[in-house]
Design a protein around this nucleic acid. Structure first.
Lengths: 344, 344
DNA sequence: TTGTAAGCGTTATCAT
DNA sequence: ATGATAACGCTTACAA
């Protein structure tokens, strides 16, 4: 081993490469590579010297070049839509944290509309992501493209009917059943439903589950209005329900928290109804804001941390073992007995 | 030009490369590259044929390999902390959208604590990001490292004193002055302040600006409590103010909306005070949730869209023109006269 | 343990 | 307009 060269290599403003480090440390370029690869066979002596020079030069291995040869980018694509849904920021942060913790980086696609999904997928392919977690509305065809390209995919809260796909989801049906049972038990009879967008599978499943359960209780005269998952639309939908029923409903079941909160405000401020004495309102998701005292929403809390942890773990497994079977994990939500509804 | 080859190349389960496409289209690999480069000199004939074969093979150019040679990753690092701050999800989505719109991808780092910034920066270097937008708390030293490495950086709502750096920020001082002036004009005299974390520059600037303005109005007996930017801490801090003043303050100025909302709830529900009749409470940021009817917060609305647009535009300029001068753009916030405070 | 050399999949340069 | 060929910065046999 030669002594360390005294002169700084001329890099003409370019970033330092492993060759620059090698030259200055008087070792071969491969030794530099090995110094940054845990478990590589390299003497402690050389490793130290390389690391020292690297620090001096501010050298960090180029992950782009690395993934070209290893065929692994350590990039996980994260697709998320519906910025309006209160729980999404929480989901996004939780997933992002878990992905970082498992040694990968997050390539984020925050989608405004479904129309953008195609373009996002194209970029996913181009950037050679190792896998993708999606909380956006993929069509069965789009899910199929992941399979064709053999890019592992985990859906978050999107269970596609008739489509074998790996997913984590809160048990929407179970949650709605529990809400309905408790509302009925408390004596509510005139029900109103506020659903989300018609093409949103989650909303559809939640609302159909609620409706089915109400029918089982012999209640089949249920008013239904459609919202857009937003606070404002929840208030408007509440107004529609009041018109349809020619008076306030006993209880309103909303497809998410944002609309439920909108409904609570509309009931209180526009219709001067007291919640929950005159009307019970329940939501779904258990977003942090739903716990604020002024709303204290009765809702089903999605176990976001556990779900995010599972999603990332399932994805990583499939990256390491490409031919695993699709698997769906359903998580029971926690019923949060807030002050926005009377439960029996 | 030869006819299209009939046999599919054997790719042994690997992704299609430009060579595979070239072989099948009976053209050179360079022609494939050109077909995907807008403005390259290639005949429409060949371009069509290449694109056709590419579609058949599901070929997309490998962005990783591309950036290795072009020395441009089209990757923008996005660092964001403080998931608790209500406005951050909005900022994140807005920045993400703008970055996508300008043809780059987002490498996301959602940080829980400042301790993670170092590790995130290391990954930024490794992935050769073209530039970074940060809404996390960087030290002057960390900002310096961006300069050393010549990686363009734009700070969002973080103006570092004595540190030339490109940034967009809402005019915190101006916003607080306007709030104070209007509160004083309405006759409030006993003031309480709820600040954020001591080491948070934004909070410090907002609170010091408010304090200075109060002094100019001859009010220098101001109670101050510290929160942690969260809803819960806002409520607790409100309690501390009541104790310190041996009674409720006339007006409470909070460093952000989440704490203001916490204070409103504490005032109403724990102290049975009517807001704004007995106590006025103002926040800062103008997050969507602050507009909800039950709070209807009086606050300064940060022009998120315009700020995000400016941040991305300034970053892109600096990526294209590396030696531009640092520049800070200050945006006046919009005073939202909600129902949580009496203004004069 | 260390060094040499061959890729990885592009774009860029230079002939033709 | 098209086709060879040389980078880009790394990892990984293989040789020493």
């Amino acid at each position: 081993m030669q002594p360390v060269a005294e002169t700084l290599p001329d890099m003409g403003n370019r970033r330092a490469t492993s060759y620059d480090v090698a030259r200055m440390a008087n070792v071969s370029q491969s030794s530099v590579s090995r110094a940054f690869t845990s478990g590589a066979s390299i003497s402690e002596d050389v490793r130290q010297r390389v690391l020292e020079v690297a620090a001096q030069l501010g050298y960090q291995p180029n992950a782009i070049a690395r993934s070209l040869i290893t065929r692994r980018s350590d990039l996980i694509g994260l697709m998320i839509g519906q910025a309006t849904n209160l729980i999404y920021p929480e989901v996004l942060f939780e997933l992002s944290r878990r992905i970082s913790a498992s040694g990968s980086r997050v390539l984020l696609f925050a989608l405004e509309s479904e129309a953008e999904i195609g373009a996002a997928m194209e970029q996913l392919w181009r950037y050679q992501v190792d896998g993708v977690i999606s909380a956006a509305r993929l069509s069965a065809e789009q899910v199929g493209e992941f399979a064709t390209r053999r890019v592992p995919l985990v859906l978050y809260n999107r269970v596609l009917p008739d489509c074998a796909v790996t997913a984590v989801s809160v048990d929407h049906a179970d949650g709605e059943r529990r809400l309905v049972d408790r509302l009925v038990k408390a004596g509510h009879r005139r029900f109103g439903l506020i659903s989300g967008p018609a093409d949103n599978a989650v909303s559809v499943e939640r609302m159909e589950s609620a409706l089915a359960r109400l029918r089982q209780h012999g209640l089949d005269q249920v008013a239904a209005a459609r919202g857009a998952y937003t606070y404002e639309s929840g208030g408007e939908a509440f107004g529609q329900l009041v018109e349809m029923l020619a008076g306030p409903p006993d209880a309103v079941i909303c497809a998410n928290d944002a609309m439920a909160i909108g409904a609570v405000d509309a009931a209180r401020h526009h219709y001067k109804l007291s919640v929950p004495q005159q009307v019970s309102i329940v939501g779904f998701d258990g977003a942090g804001t739903a716990r604020w005292l002024s709303y204290d929403l009765t809702t089903i809390r999605q176990p976001v941390r556990r779900m995010a942890e599972a999603a990332v773990q399932m994805l990583m497994e499939r990256i390491d073992t490409p031919d695993m079977e699709p698997e769906t994990r359903l998580y029971a939500g926690e019923l949060i007995q807030g002050g926005s509804a009377r439960l029996g």
